[in-house]
Write a protein that binds this DNA or RNA. Structure first.
Length: 182
DNA sequence: TGAGCGGCTCCTTATATATCAGCTTCGG
DNA sequence: CCGAAGCTGATATATAAGGAGCCGCTCA
């Protein structure tokens, strides 16, 4: 019903890196284009999450499909740095999940013009000429939900999958109430 | 009037979603 | 040579990060 499609996590190592040197040491798994953006992109295999490493030792992991995959990937990253003598111990200062992107399917097509009014103009934005989805900011959450005429939804801005499910159920219930009273 | 500093915005990455414009390619 | 089809890149959402550039403000 609700599925995680992307996890963004970040962490910090208590080390400053010479990115030029690290990129050389890492070889083909690293991509370094300082003129484009001052980081090293690290990808161990195709279709695996991407690590963005900063000079300051901070890093971001994007593209995981679960929190666990994100954590596993962090482990792999720390071990890689440790095994290559880039850090002394495979430990970091902090690590946390920053954002989840989830998708859901309401199994019915929707009239976004009427839905904008029914959900409330103060919590929705719908400008089809700008973007085809309805932007819904459910009260009580920091999350943003994109609702499309096809019935597909995208939920983002949360750190917890349970909350994504809670929001999805709430949206589904609201829409079924609205369609029942019409 | 100019130096310096703080705050702000944009850049980039992943990812789903959908719709537009503009471009390339292909067939008749 | 032209229309159709397909592809690409914008549009918007969240989030972390460091650097560059810009703007406004303060103080000498």
């Amino acid at each position: 019903m609700v599925k995680i499609v992307n996890v963004v996590a970040s962490g910090s190592l208590d080390v400053e890196f010479d990115l030029e040197q690290v990129a050389t040491d890492m070889g083909s798994v690293a991509e370094y284009s300082p003129k484009k953006y001052p980081v090293i992109y690290i990808r161990f295999k195709d279709d695996t999450p991407l690590i963005t490493l900063y000079r300051t030792g901070k890093y971001i992991i994007t593209g995981s499909e679960s929190k666990q995959q994100s954590r596993n990937f962090r482990e792999e990253f720390l071990n890689f740095l440790s095994n290559n003598q880039m850090i002394t111990t495979p430990k970091d200062e902090w690590f946390c999940i920053q954002n989840l992107v989830c998708t859901g399917e309401l199994d019915q097509s929707l009239n976004l013009n009427t839905l904008t009014v029914d959900l409330g103009l103060e919590v929705t934005e719908y400008e089809p000429e700008q973007f085809p989805g309805l932007i819904y900011r459910p009260s009580g959450f920091t999350s943003v939900v994109l609702i499309f005429a096809s019935g597909r939804v995208v939920i983002t801005g949360i750190q917890d999958f349970d909350i994504a499910q809670e929001i999805f159920i709430s949206v589904r219930n609201k829409i079924s109430e609205i369609t029942n009273t019409e």
